[in-house]
Design a protein around this nucleic acid. Structure first.
Lengths: 130, 130
DNA sequence: CTCAACCTTCCCCTATACTGGAATGTCAAG
DNA sequence: CTTGACATTCCAGTATAGGGGAAGGTTGAG
């Protein structure tokens, strides 16, 4: 009983995003009013809020879609959610480790550049310190 | 005096990448042999290796292009490189901090899901624990 | 009546650094 | 003469999560 703009605002999203989610199968096609406008109810908003929480946890839309499919099949997706969050933790740990390794390499280069003089830089190598 | 494949191999890249860099202005247009083939010399390879080092430090091609432009203007780009690496360090620190914040949020959710029972999960919320 | 604020569909664009593939040309070896 | 390994250009696609904007329909208010 709300139009797309209102539902979007209630979920903290834009109308564009709702249409995008519908197109991507994250939000089931909703009823239309006689004028063709989409008509959302509170359930839609709850679902949108769930998607938002998932996004906030760094889950991809594809993963959220999986969870929604399980709930739609009548099962509690909690086990799946638990596994997914474990995977997400592992991914984050990998990313963090990679960034920290890169950070330490860059810090080393940074110190090297600081220690060198521009005059000592070999033009053949563009910049000897990198 | 080497063709594109050889130069690419020498720099640890593909021929496609060399054409892409040339198109993007990172590698100046090189001489052509009478048959129209690009003809690279050792300087080209040095330049490609520089680009590689820059990429390994996580610099964007646009940033590497800047450094190359300075060297082309006859100046030593070391100061600029130094600033750029400082910026890169700051970026990395921000990204790491964001990922660690996300990681801790996800870890909290993960523990919450583990503590809950699927039976206690409210279908209205899809999964109460996320 | 008209205006503003909604809504609809449709298609293209964004960033990044390449990668794939088609159609065609060049050249040394067998 | 043909085959195979190179090379050329150009066009299109990859992944992600939407955003921009056109052209048009609908509605309530003044």
């Amino acid at each position: 009983m709300m139009r797309i703009g209102e539902a979007a605002a209630a979920a903290g999203m834009t109308a564009k995003t709702l249409r995008f989610y519908e197109e991507g199968g994250l939000l089931p096609a909703v009823k239309r009013s006689s004028n063709g406008y989409r008509d959302y109810n509170q359930d839609s908003v709850s679902r949108l809020e769930f998607i938002r929480r998932g996004r906030a946890a760094g889950l991809a839309l594809a993963q959220i879609r999986e969870i929604l499919a399980i709930r739609e099949a009548g099962e509690a997706p909690c086990t799946h959610v638990h596994d997914m969050l474990a995977g997400q933790l592992a991914d984050l740990d990998n990313q963090i480790a990679e960034l920290m390794a890169l950070r330490s390499a860059v810090a080393g280069l940074h110190a090297t550049v600081a220690a060198g003089t521009p005059a000592g830089c070999d033009p053949e190598r563009i910049c000897s310190y990198l």
